[in-house]
Simulated scan of single mutants.
Amino acid sequence: MGNAPSTLTQYDIEEVQEHCNKLFNQQEIVSLYQRFCQLDRTAKGFISSDEFMSVPEFAMNPLAQRLLKMVDGLNFKDFVGFLSAFSAKASVEQKAALIFRVYDTDGNGKVTFNDILEVLCDMTGSFMSNEEREAVLTQLLQEAGYTRESYLIPDDFVKIFANSDTKMEVEVPVD
């Protein structure tokens, strides 16, 4: 599996399965590898941010710039590891951990009012004013038992995500 894309061996597939906690079966790993090779246009063994932006669904995501910080330069194993949070078999904790990383842009292990406000701004763009966003977020936090001065930790995201109906799943097409 080295630097340049090549054929996956059974050992490679099993290694990738272990890395992603067996959330993808062998067929799905092979399909993901084919997609990885398509995205890795220069066959360097990793996907650049420009190559990620060539995926329309990714480019259209209002959080694309935040996600790019997480995915730029991923090799195949880490690419599958990143995608494993989107597996239907992923636990609430795995999904919440990914969402937490999206919000915790400075990586300090805490999500503040301003962190959430930045994400909300990315998601709403010019459809809401800063004042409207702040008012909505303040009310939402109050309803959840938090204040503007509170900060959220990963466990808070697990609790919030466990109590929501949010689906964060991607189906891997198998040839």
Rank of each mutant, 00 (worst) to 15 (best):
V170L: 14
Q65V: 08
N108V: 06
I99E: 09
S126G: 09
D122E: 04
R41F: 06
L39V: 01
L68F: 00
F36P: 03
D40F: 04
L137W: 04
D175Y: 05
P154L: 13
E143T: 05
Q10Y: 06
F113W: 06
C20R: 00
R35L: 12
L8H: 07
D40I: 01
F79Q: 09
F82R: 08
L23H: 03
V30S: 02
D104R: 08
S126T: 13
A135H: 13
A162F: 04
L120F: 07
I29D: 06
N114I: 11
E131K: 11
M70Q: 14
R41E: 15
D175H: 02
V71F: 12
G2W: 10
Q26K: 14
E14V: 01
S87W: 10
L23K: 05
Q65Y: 06
K77E: 07
R35D: 12
L141P: 03
M70S: 13
C121M: 05
T138I: 02
A59V: 03
E169Q: 14
G81W: 10
L152W: 07
N25P: 02
F161Y: 11
M123F: 03
V158I: 13
L98R: 01
E57L: 14
F58S: 09
L68E: 00
D78P: 01
S49Y: 04
Q17P: 03
M53V: 02
S49C: 13
L67S: 08
E143Y: 01
E15N: 13
T112F: 03
D104S: 07
G2P: 15
N130H: 14
E18P: 01
A59E: 11
Y33L: 13
E57H: 12
L67T: 11
S31H: 03
H19N: 06
Y151M: 00
M60P: 00
K110T: 05
G145F: 08
R66W: 11
P56T: 12
Q139W: 06
Q10K: 13
D106F: 10
N114T: 14
V16W: 03
V80Y: 08
D155H: 11
D40W: 04
D72Y: 05
S31Y: 04
A64C: 14
Q26H: 11
A90G: 02
